[in-house]
Design a protein around this nucleic acid. Structure first.
Lengths: 234, 234
DNA sequence: GCAAAAGTGTTATCGCTACACCCATGT
DNA sequence: ACATGGGTGTAGCGATAACACTTTTGC
């Protein structure tokens, strides 16, 4: 920062409350879901909202968001990215609070159900979001938009699936995002052509009698793919 | 936000200094440039840095950044977007300050030179950035990366050119971003195929004896283009 | 008249789209 | 035996990439 402020003015600056809010996405083989929480403090106790917290004095924003996620889901090492800031003067009816929204992708199957209950958390279809407090609806809309965009050109959908997943499962995430059916031959051909998945010998039979082969995402192969000048694009 | 904090804890939260910093891009027909400022307050007086300021009590982050831009360049209605937050505990040697970086695209030809001098501002080639204070170098790198990405799929390069510009000028911006020469026949064909430019009868003769026709970006046509399901991709 | 940039078309290749049937298995 | 989802190949089309020469004009 470089400014017309003198050093003396440094201390005159008004300090502000800073919070993080997390938009948590999951996928349950039917649809993209969002984890929302029943608020247990006033104001607006009982309303639905994103999970969040004021930032800690000894943590940066990303780590603060990570902490929120760990507490509310019981999960570590979650895919987490900053979305954007929300800083309108009237966004919180009480104090002036600016919030930095983060979005997270979790594997629903790894979610600790005890934590979720303790926090009064519930999954909602991302196409059917209920009313939320403050500007949380805006955050959700922005996050969905961002995610849809990012899924097209970054290999992030794997973060929503178990380590081992089938091609049809993967396809169905993309079908959710794009809201249209994809041709399974073309989809399979495309994703496999990138050479970033390892096929296992195992099959998943939860979705069909025949069973579908399980694959694992290989980050090394992906880095190779990019290093060769290719672009991930679905 | 929704948290384990009780209402009582609301007021116990530590408040924080919040700033905005601006990465200002320009294009001078040779190269992408960055506007950097000689710092006039301690600490690190005399060092180069981005322009920034603490946020105003009565403005949100975006408006605070806009104000910084107006003051330092004399320009209004600048293309301005949030990049991301920077919140490491040790990023400012004095107080704890979090900064929200914004990037801006301006038309160098519209820049008010008086303002620039008053602020001790200088243009630097984006491939040859000098040392900057704090984490400003990181901000610059992140902004360049973002801009390169965004230029590929959003029609933002026009914000770096005069209202009326030539196809070769436009091409040369992309050549800067991608660091490689493009085939002029293919480039022209592609950009014109989008049907988002209006050709004028005027010619620009600053770059050649023959002169090149001037074009104007047409936002309506672009919206049309998108509405028809197309994607801008260069 | 020459140097320097603007402007223009065609061909070959590659990638994408569209499309239909057999396979494996649990019930 | 049948219902259900998994898995495979090809042909046509459209988009991209590679390529060289003519035009205009200031000097």
């Amino acid at each position: 920062m470089n400014t017309t402020n003198t050093s003396a003015e440094y201390i005159k600056q008004e300090k502000i409350l800073v919070a993080v809010d997390c938009i948590i996405f999951g996928f349950d083989s039917e649809s993209i879901k969002l984890l929302l929480f029943k608020r247990r403090v006033e104001p607006l106790k009982g309303s639905l909202s994103l999970i969040g917290s004021f930032i800690k004095n000894d943590l940066n924003l990303n780590d603060s968001a990570k902490l929120v996620l760990e507490e509310s889901t019981g999960l570590k090492d979650i895919f987490l990215k900053e979305l954007r800031t929300y800083s309108n003067l009237d966004r919180d009816p009480g104090n002036r609070v600016i919030s930095v929204a983060h979005y997270a992708l979790i594997r629903i199957n790894e979610l600790d159900i005890k934590n979720v209950e303790e926090y009064d958390a519930h999954w909602f279809d991302f196409n059917d979001i209920p009313n939320l407090i403050f500007d949380h609806r805006q955050m959700v809309d922005d996050a969905i938009h961002r995610l849809r965009d990012e899924a097209r050109r970054e290999p992030i959908c794997f973060k929503l699936l178990p380590e081992e997943f089938t091609i049809p499962q993967l396809q169905s995430i993309y079908e959710c995002f794009y809201q249209k059916n994809l041709d399974s031959r073309n989809f399979r051909k495309k994703i496999l052509s990138f050479n970033i998945l390892n096929k296992t010998e195992k099959k998943d039979k939860t979705a069909s009698k025949k069973g579908a082969f399980l694959y694992v995402y290989d980050k090394e192969k992906f880095d190779d793919f990019i290093a060769k000048g290719n672009r991930f694009q679905l």
